[in-house]
Structure formats: C-alpha cells, structure tokens
C-alpha cells in the first residue's frame, strides 16, 4: 500500500517538474488536483482547528478543551461574540447590509494592530536604534575612535561626492578637481587605517561603521517627502547600494536552501526507483 502512495507521489512530482519543459496535460492535471484537494483540505482544517474548538464546542456543547463551561458564563460569551463577528463578515454577500461586515473587520484589524504596536516599536525601532547608535562600541582607545570617525566621515563624503557632485558638475569643474584630490586622500587614508585596524577590535569597529553608514543611506532612500536630489540623492544612492548587496546575499542563501529542497525531492524519486527495482527483482 505504501508503494502505491509513493508511486502516486512520484508521478505527481514528475508531472509538476514537466512544467520545466512546457505547459502540458500532466502539469494541468497535477495543478488542478492540488488546487482542488487543498480547497477541501483547508475547509476541514479550518473547521476542526478553529470553528469547532473555538466556537461550536463552547457555544453549543458548553465545553472548552474538554472542560465544561456554564451557559451564559464569561467564557461562553467570549466564544459567542467573536463567532457572531465572524458571521457578520458574510454580510458582504447581501449588498443592503454589507456595511455590517466592516465592524468585524474593524475590530479584527484594530485589535491586531493595537496588540502589535508596542512590540514592533520596541523590537524594530528602539532596539535597532540603540544597537546602531552604540555599534561603534568596539573602539575603546579615544585616538582610534577619532580616526575611525574621520574615516567614516571620509567614506561617506567620498561616496556622496562620487555619486552626486561629479555627475552634476562635470569632471572639468574646479570643484570636481578638488573633489578628486579629496577623494584620493580619503581613500589613501582609509587604506592606511584599514591596514592599521587589522585587529579584532578594529575590524569589528570598521564593520560597525559600515553598518551605520548603510543604515543612514537606506533610511534616506525611503524618505518620500523630498525629491532624491543633492545630498539626499547621494545618501539614497548609498542606501540602494547597501540594499542590493543585502539582497544579493539573501538571494544566494535562499537559492542554496531551495537546492537542498530539490535534492530532497530527487532523493524521494531515487528511493521510488529503488522500490520499483526491488519489486521487479532488478
């Protein structure tokens, strides 16, 4: 019996993979099968995981998780009210009372947002701000701190210069020539500092400085109240560079995990072939 199910799984897997060649009846069959089966499956899952234990059981059978509750008790009302709000969602099928469904949606969205506000502000704003503001903590020596600060400002200025000033003024402009000198000096100074910072604390500090620069640039990119021109434009360009580097890393990492999924599926097919060979004694 197991072999039959494995065979069905293998045939459906091959049918889905046949899409790599082109759309074909096998793929269509597998696609429609999975869509149809999932619709029925989710109906049952939703009923038994949500509606039955949270609404039907407490309201009509007067029990929650096997424990009896009283008719009209607090818990009974706490099951009935959300159940009724859920029913209100179906009011949209009756145009005259469709607006009633917005009450349920409003309570649902509002409650969710209210509960999420504090943790989101804490975890995604305050903690990240704190971590980034103090991320240069790898530097203990005041001289190293100041040179790192100078390096950070230099890198930042050089990037903005390269991305904005030169483009806007043209390479022949005297300011652009001065800029070339400044950028060269900053790069040389930065190189010297990088060499001198090849120690664990120095590397940590340099990485953190890059992190701060990246964050400032990225935040600037997502500033919508001004046009991306001038300094803001330069900052935004720095931000987009960092974003793309991050996306590249994330893309590679995910492709790696997808390849491991593919290996798992191919392993399943190889096992299936092995079972066939076992049955036919090959």
């Amino acid at each position: 019996m197991t072999f039959i199910w494995t065979t069905i799984g293998a045939i459906l897997t091959l049918s889905i993979y046949s899409f790599l060649y082109k759309d074909n009846p096998f793929y269509k069959f597998a696609e429609h099968l999975v869509v149809g089966v999932s619709a029925g499956y989710y109906l049952v899952i939703y009923y038994f995981n949500y509606i039955h234990p949270n609404v039907f059981s407490p309201v009509f059978l007067l029990e929650i998780g096997g424990e009896p509750i009283g008719f009209g008790s607090f818990l009974w009302w706490m099951a009935l009210i959300p159940g009724l709000l859920g029913v209100l969602l179906y009011a949209r099928f009756f145009p005259k009372i469709a607006w009633v469904g917005r009450w349920a949606l409003g309570i649902y969205v509002g409650g969710y947002a209210g509960l999420g506000l504090s943790p989101v502000m804490q975890a995604r704003v305050i903690e990240q701000l704190r971590a980034n503001a103090l991320s240069v903590a790898g530097v203990e020596d005041p001289f190293a701190a100041m040179t790192n600060l100078a390096l950070a400002v230099g890198i930042f200025a050089a990037m903005i210069y390269l991305l904005v000033v030169k483009r806007n003024l043209g390479a022949k402009n005297p300011l652009a020539k001065v800029g070339v000198l400044v950028v060269s000096a900053v790069i040389a100074y930065g190189g010297w500092l990088v060499l001198s910072l090849i120690s664990s604390a120095g590397v940590v500090s340099l990485t953190n400085i890059l992190l701060v620069i990246g964050l400032l640039g990225t935040l600037s990119y997502f500033f919508f109240s001004m046009k991306h021109k001038g300094i803001l434009g330069g900052l935004a360009r720095v931000g987009i560079v960092f974003l793309m580097v991050g996306f590249g890393a994330s893309f590679g990492y995910t492709v790696m995990s997808r390849i491991s999924l593919l290996i798992g599926r191919v392993g399943f097919l190889i096992d299936w072939v092995g079972q066939i060979r076992g049955i036919f004694g090959a």
Partner: peptide, 23 residues
C-alpha cells in the same frame, strides 16, 4: 513615518558621535 526616520537618523548620529567622543 518620514519624519520619524529623520528623528531616528538624528538620534542614531548623536549616539555614534557622542560615543566616539566619550564612551
């Protein structure tokens, strides 16, 4: 949210500079 970003950048820059000047 735009001006919240400006505030965030200000706080973060102040934190970095003040930390570097005197931890």
């Amino acid at each position: 949210s735009d001006w919240m970003k400006v505030l965030s950048i200000t706080i973060m820059t102040a934190g970095v500079v003040l930390y570097l000047l005197n931890p």
